[in-house]
Design a binder for these strands. Structure first.
Length: 571
DNA sequence: AGTTTCGGCGCC
DNA sequence: AAAGGGCGCCGAAACT
């Protein structure tokens, strides 16, 4: 009985398929089917489809009304395996993997293409790169061996499986779209911004605020031009380095209030205003292009539409279909819970073993009940705060939760020293650039300034401590912060992928659809009568994901759930 | 004229 | 006193 099959779109529009054996190699002849959907539909017993790229194959299957239970995305796995092997700079296409296997010239990856509003085509390839099925299977079998060669094969297998599942979820979400009421959206815009004027200029409310700002300065000022605002403040005798909110906020000047209001509304106008509505909403659905595994940490990104930055006021436009509901579920304090599970800090595991507010519990133990301080300290530890009140709070946190803080401190040190840093399941943060590799820089990892590196002992602080590569660089500290955050944010993303996979399976027999995912928050659109089942499925999937990811752990992963007709009504 | 970077802010 | 992770998006500014 074969449960894994490989599938490759053929150049004639058909599909090549073949069963795979336990070793991942071909276990039968390569068959031909006239199209992808026919090939899959005829084989409901297949438990996992192995293919080159989910983004290439799955939207076409969904368009034909065909879903699959599981898949294995060879190119995604290649990315994760290369990263784990410390080779993140190398091309990750199946063709490149094959070339490496056979010792031929390795083709570079095709460039990514920008998003087009309303389009639903896949993101990664301008045109599909055909890889014949036997070649694909060869790469796959080798990948199976590479999983076994890692230090934690079971975790690596879980990681690639989870991320492949995430790709299925993303494709399904892209197809479903987020229910969106253009009418409500327009009403919100009108309430906030006033009427639009002909010619596409600022709406009434923004024009009024700009006038107020100008009146306060005594001359014409365009509040959307930082340079203009800085100059205006200077003329009023106030030096500001920028026009950021936190810097402007505390200034005592009559222009400040309308200026801050302008900036808030301007942002909504340009990023989620009428033209956004025109570009991104069709037939009652907002269709962003969700991209699983779009970041180094494993968080998703969306391409176009700013789906992960929908302002709270605009969420009023997310409205369920008649008779349907939105189940909005938000993981409670996910990152410290993940840190507790990873570090096995006894104190933090104890507070994370409850479903009650974790920050309150931490504050009771280490901050005399001051929840805000506790939250800042925890987030500071995770984000790498290195100065200010945060340092004092961090010291208090370290006294009570030493193993937890040591866990992120170790990651930070590894990052500073340019070593590989991994999430719990083995997703790997590229190290600082070495000669011949530039993947880390492309991925946004802080790099050494060439002028600062390679200078050896004596060039840094002069402390006399042992010199380590990169430590002399100021960017080494930034890399440390990156790594510190990476282990927590990335491991949380590992867990979230398994949550999504479980929830997707639970929804499989229902009309319910996953329609939104934002790091630690998920929205399911379902008929009213399914809502209670969906709520239970989320709780179940969260605990299962915790056990799968971290093994035996007392840490709980509670969700706050709300069954609503409008997203804005959740919590 | 077209392309890239910057500043600022939205979300987690 | 300033201050710390991950992203995307927009218009303006800076560039070619």
């Amino acid at each position: 009985m074969t449960d894994r099959w490989a599938l490759a779109p053929a150049e004639d529009g058909g599909a090549e398929i073949a069963p795979l054996g336990p070793d991942g190699l071909l276990a039968g002849p390569v068959l031909w089917e006239p199209d992808l959907a026919t090939a899959v539909r005829a084989r409901p017993e297949v438990a996992r489809w192995v293919w080159r790229s989910t983004a290439e194959v799955y939207p076409r299957l969904l368009a034909a009304g065909v879903r699959v239970e599981r898949c294995y995305d060879v190119e995604d796995a290649e990315t994760l395996l290369l990263g784990h092997e410390g080779r993140s700079g190398e091309p990750r296409s199946a063709a490149a993997a094959l070339a490496r296997l056979r010792g031929g010239p390795v083709p570079p990856d095709p460039p990514q293409r920008a998003a087009v509003p309303g389009s639903q085509s896949s993101l990664f390839e301008p045109r599909p790169v055909h890889v014949p099925l036997p070649d694909l299977v060869e790469v796959y079998a080798e990948q199976q061996r590479r999983h076994e060669a890692t230090d934690r094969p079971e975790r690596m297998r879980l990681l690639t499986a989870a991320e492949s599942a995430g790709m299925l979820v993303a494709a399904e979400m892209n197809r479903a779209g987020l229910p969106w009421s253009a009418e409500v959206h327009r009403r919100v815009l009108h309430e906030l911004l006033g009427e639009r004027y002909a010619g596409g200029g600022e709406p009434r409310r923004l024009a009024e605020l700009a006038d107020e700002v100008s009146a306060a300065f005594g001359r014409r000022v365009r509040p959307d031009l930082p340079a203009d605002v800085v100059k205006a403040f200077a003329q009023a005798g106030i030096k500001v380095r920028s026009t950021r909110r936190w810097e402007i906020r505390s200034i005592d000047h009559p222009a400040v209030k309308p200026l801050l209001e302008y900036k808030k509304l301007y942002r909504i106008w340009v990023a989620h205003g009428w033209s956004w509505l025109q570009d991104w909403v069709r037939d009652g659905r907002f269709r962003p292009e969700f991209q699983a595994g779009g970041t180094v940490t494993g968080r998703w990104v969306t391409n176009g539409g700013g789906a992960l930055q929908i302002p709270k006021v605009i969420r009023r436009a997310v409205v369920a279909d008649p008779g349907w509901r939105l189940v909005v579920a938000d993981a409670d304090q996910m990152e410290p819970r993940v840190l507790a599970a990873m570090s096995r800090d006894p104190g933090l595991m104890e507070v994370a073993g409850r479903e009650t507010d974790l920050y309150q519990s931490v504050s009771d133990r280490a901050f005399s009940g001051n929840r805000d301080q506790a939250k800042l300290a925890v987030l500071g530890a995770v984000y790498g705060q290195t100065s200010g009140d945060g340092l004092k709070n961090l010291a208090a946190l370290r006294r009570r939760f030493p193993k937890a803080v040591a866990y992120v401190d170790d990651a930070a040190r590894a990052g500073e020293e340019g070593r590989l840093v991994r999430t719990w399941l083995g997703r790997t943060c590229p190290p600082a650039a070495r000669p011949g590799g530039d993947a880390a820089e492309e991925a946004g990892i802080p790099q050494d300034d060439p002028a600062e590196t390679g200078t050896g002992p004596g060039s840094s602080s002069g402390s006399g401590s042992e010199w380590v590569p990169g430590y002399a660089s100021t960017n080494a500290r930034a890399r440390g912060r990156f790594a510190r955050n990476f282990v927590v944010q990335g491991s949380a993303a590992d867990w979230a992928l398994l949550l999504l996979a479980g929830l997707r399976q639970a929804c499989a027999g229902m009309a319910a659809e996953l329609v939104f995912f934002q790091h630690d928050e998920v929205i399911v659109h379902c008929p009213e009568e399914e809502a209670a089942t969906v709520v239970a499925a989320i709780r179940e999937a969260a605990e299962t994901a915790g056990r799968l990811t971290f093994g035996q752990t007392p840490v709980r992963f509670p969700f706050t759930t709300a069954v609503v007709e409008c997203y804005a009504d959740a919590k």
